[in-house]
């Protein structure tokens, strides 16, 4: 197996160029898919027979909830790579993922609340998934706060990596404990919608929205990782050359 591509990608300047080439495609594809997904979700899809038009919130809630968890896993994995191989690139990816993941966790929570009001009759129900999502937001905020508290970017990233890994072990335990906690209280009946056989004109916009959100998250993470690399490598030649090239152009125009 030839690993040179991996080493080349791992070097900051080549990753910077690679990300610069990939990000516009991800962004463009994401926006196109999102435009289709939202149009089809809001206009083409028929109202749900039980939830009427309120079900359309699914098209923003589910993608946000899905990426919130995926990005946390990505952040912890990048953190593990950063700790084990001391790879600058993995540190940059980890630090770049945290704000993106946190923003979509917040979105999943807010849309969950807005969906909950018409369906459950209350903005907030201490339902297992919603509660676990809230704890996930706290975990993201912890990583962002810890990273911001360090002056030394590399030490900060490694501390965040340790925290993210402990958080990753914590997430399934939280989920399980909250489910157990919910099973303890009898009486309150939460409206449970079974897994319906979702019709195609309802499902396709959802798949498009999911893919779009992953693409746009990828775009944001690549751009943010580029920023992190610029900061971390600010004293190297490639960054200085890039800065004069880009900055010079910006000053002329």
């Amino acid at each position: 197996m030839n690993w040179t591509w991996f080493h080349r990608l791992g070097s900051p300047p080549s990753f910077y160029r690679f990300a610069g080439r990939l990000a516009p495609w991800l962004g463009g594809l994401g926006l196109l898919l999102l435009a289709y997904g939202w149009y089809a979700g809001l206009v083409l899809a028929p109202p749900d027979y039980q939830q009427k038009d309120a079900f359309r919130i699914i098209y923003v809630h589910v993608p946000a909830a899905a990426v919130s968890l995926s990005l946390y896993v990505l952040m912890a994995l990048a953190g593990a790579v950063a700790l084990i191989w001391r790879m600058k690139l993995a540190e940059a990816v980890m630090v770049a993922t945290a704000p993106v993941g946190a923003s979509f966790t917040a979105l999943a929570l807010v849309t969950g609340m807005l969906w909950g009001k018409p369906m459950w009759g209350a903005y907030w129900v201490w339902d297992a998934r919603l509660t676990a999502e809230l704890v996930l937001l706290f975990l993201y905020c912890g990583v962002i706060g810890l990273n911001a508290a360090f002056d030394d970017a590399r030490a900060g990233a490694r501390a965040c990596a340790l925290l993210a890994i402990v958080g990753l072990v914590n997430v399934p335990i939280v989920h399980f404990s909250v489910e157990w906690w919910n099973s303890l209280h009898q009486g309150s009946t939460i409206l449970k919608f079974g897994k319906p056989a979702i019709s195609a004109d309802m499902a396709w916009p959802l798949y498009a929205g999911l893919l779009a959100t992953y693409c746009l998250c990828g775009h944001a993470i690549l751009r943010r990782a580029q920023n992190e690399l610029l900061l971390r490598e600010r004293n190297t030649r490639w960054v200085r050359e890039l800065a004069t090239e880009l900055g010079g152009g910006a000053r002329v125009s």
């Binding site: 706290f138 975990l139 905020c141 912890g142 706060g145 404990s177 909250v178 906690w181």
Partner: peptide, 15 residues
């Protein structure tokens, strides 16, 4: 920073 980082990790213990 300490309480903010500890509390989410301690949720299952409290539950």
């Amino acid at each position: 920073l300490l309480p903010v980082l500890v509390l989410p990790l301690i949720v299952p213990v409290v539950i």
